[in-house]
Deep mutational scan, measured.
Amino acid sequence: MSDQEAKPSTEDLGDKKEGEYIKLKVIGQDSSEIHFKVKMTTHLKKLKESYCQRQGVPMNSLRFLFEGQRIADNHTPKELGMEEEDVIEVYQEQTGGHSTV
């Protein structure tokens, strides 16, 4: 019986991991920090939209990076291997420009 009891508790931990929340720091170019608590399985588009709304800027005017890689709207913290207190960097999107060649 103890084996049966242990097995469901392991499964519960697996389920808990799926719905687990982590805190992420979003740091802007001006070094301002906003902290977000997100589920591991939530699409990061929600975090990006919330950040842009707080900053009063359109979402397409900023780019969000985690460990140097651009974050897509459909990425989740779990897919990117994010952990508690990880940092997302935000930069002004640069458009235009010309070749110097």
Results as ranks from 00 to 15, higher is better:
Asp15Ser: 09
Met82Ser: 04
Gly28Ala: 15
Gly96Ala: 02
Gln53Val: 09
Lys25Cys: 04
Pro77Gly: 02
Ile34Gln: 02
Ile22Leu: 07
Gly14Val: 13
Gln94Asp: 05
Gly14Lys: 13
Glu11Arg: 10
Tyr21Lys: 10
Ala72Tyr: 12
Glu84Trp: 14
Pro58Arg: 08
Met82Glu: 04
Phe66Met: 04
Lys45Pro: 02
Arg70Tyr: 06
Lys17Ile: 08
Lys23Cys: 07
Lys37Glu: 03
Gln55His: 09
Thr76Glu: 00
Lys17Trp: 10
Pro58Trp: 00
Gly96Arg: 02
Asp86Arg: 03
Gly19Ile: 11
Val57Gly: 04
Lys46Thr: 07
Lys25Phe: 04
Met40Asn: 11
Lys37Leu: 07
Gln55Phe: 07
His35Tyr: 12
His35Ala: 07
Ala6Ile: 11
Phe66Tyr: 13
Lys23Asn: 09
Gly19Ala: 11
His35Arg: 12
Tyr91Gln: 07
Ala72Val: 10
Asp12Cys: 11
Phe64Cys: 04
Leu62Val: 15
Thr41Val: 00
Pro8Ile: 06
Ser9Thr: 12
Ile88Val: 14
Ser2Met: 11
Val87Gly: 07
Leu44Asp: 04
Ser32Cys: 08
Asp15Gly: 12
Lys39Met: 00
Cys52Leu: 02
Ser9Lys: 15
Asn60Lys: 06
Lys48Val: 02
Glu89Thr: 13
Ser61Thr: 08
Leu13His: 06
Lys37Arg: 14
Tyr21Glu: 06
Ser50Phe: 15
Ala72Gln: 07
Leu65Cys: 04
Lys23Phe: 02
Gly28Phe: 00
Asp30Pro: 06
Arg63Pro: 00
Val38Phe: 06
Ala72Asp: 09
Asp73Leu: 02
Gly81Tyr: 00
Glu20Pro: 15
Val90His: 05
Leu47Asn: 03
Ala6Trp: 13
Lys48His: 00
Thr76Val: 01
Ala72Ser: 14
Glu93Gly: 08
Ile71Gln: 02
His35Gln: 10
Glu49Leu: 07
Phe36Lys: 00
Gln4Thr: 14
Ser2Phe: 12
Glu93Ser: 10
Lys37Asn: 05
Gly28Trp: 08
Ser61Met: 07
Ser50Met: 13
Glu49Pro: 00
Pro8Ser: 11
Glu85Cys: 14
Leu13Gly: 09
Gln69Phe: 08
Asp15Glu: 12
